[in-house]
């Protein structure tokens, strides 16, 4: 495509909610699909896709404004890693999912981030690190602190979830949506979107899941 800027989906109607593309990344069986499935399923407003669980759309209602999230699931197997950068094109947000019981998946998430940064300019797009499977706390290999530190040093949002127990799942998506809207507002305030928009991991939503 003719080098259209990835961030702005072209032609936005004032009346319609903004469409944002969110890419799900993470190695195999960390629960990417279950995370999104849990999120989409539990909301009775959204209709489950008749076939497949790889592409979803969902309107996130955030009080005053709403946002239409388009969730793109990606293949997590190691062998597809090299081609997955194609998914990033035009993404507004990304979830880096890892399994807290598998250290390697955490390292993998870091690798994804490096790839992602090649495609997205710094400050462009919202990236959240998600540690999944908190229900398996006794097998934990990656501590909450580790995840948080990594996220902070890379200016990512961070949360731990359990798709199985439906802990913090919808919060993940609504936080991302909120951040997207905030950025948009900030960008329209300042004439050009500055690259320096710093994303501090907002501490509030993390408080609940670190009880273990």
């Amino acid at each position: 495509m003719a080098q259209t800027d990835g961030l702005t989906p072209p032609r936005e109607a004032p009346g319609q909610p903004r469409v944002s593309k969110l890419v799900l990344l993470g190695s195999g069986s960390v629960g990417k699909s279950s995370l999104v499935l849990r999120y989409v399923k539990d909301d009775f407003k959204s209709v489950l896709p008749t076939v497949g669980c790889a592409f979803f759309t969902k309107v996130v209602d955030l009080g005053a404004s709403s946002l239409k999230l388009e969730i793109w699931d990606t293949a997590g197997q190691e062998k597809y890693h090299s081609v997955c950068h194609l998914y990033f094109r035009g993404a507004n947000a990304a979830l880096l999912v890892y399994d807290i019981t598998r250290k390697d998946s955490f390292h993998k998430a870091q690798q994804w981030l490096a790839d992602l940064e090649k495609e997205l300019h710094p400050g462009e797009g919202v990236v959240m690190l998600v540690g999944n499977k908190t229900d398996l706390g006794e097998q934990r290999e990656v501590t909450f602190q580790e995840g948080k530190e990594f996220a902070e040093s890379n200016k990512l949002l961070f949360m731990e979830t359990s798709a199985k127990l439906n802990l913090q799942v919808s919060e993940v998506f609504s936080t991302v949506a909120q951040e997207l809207l905030q950025r948009e507002a900030r960008q329209s305030h300042s004439a050009q979107g500055e690259a320096a928009v710093v994303l501090n991991a907002s501490p509030a939503p993390q408080a609940k899941c670190c009880a273990r």
Binding site: G52, C53, A75
Partner: peptide, 18 residues
């Protein structure tokens, strides 16, 4: 997606689709 769904008896994810 349909083919995977019939084979696996559950909706396919991106891991299966690609």
């Amino acid at each position: 997606f349909n083919a995977i769904k019939v084979t696996k008896r559950e909706p396919a994810s991106a891991d299966d689709f690609l």
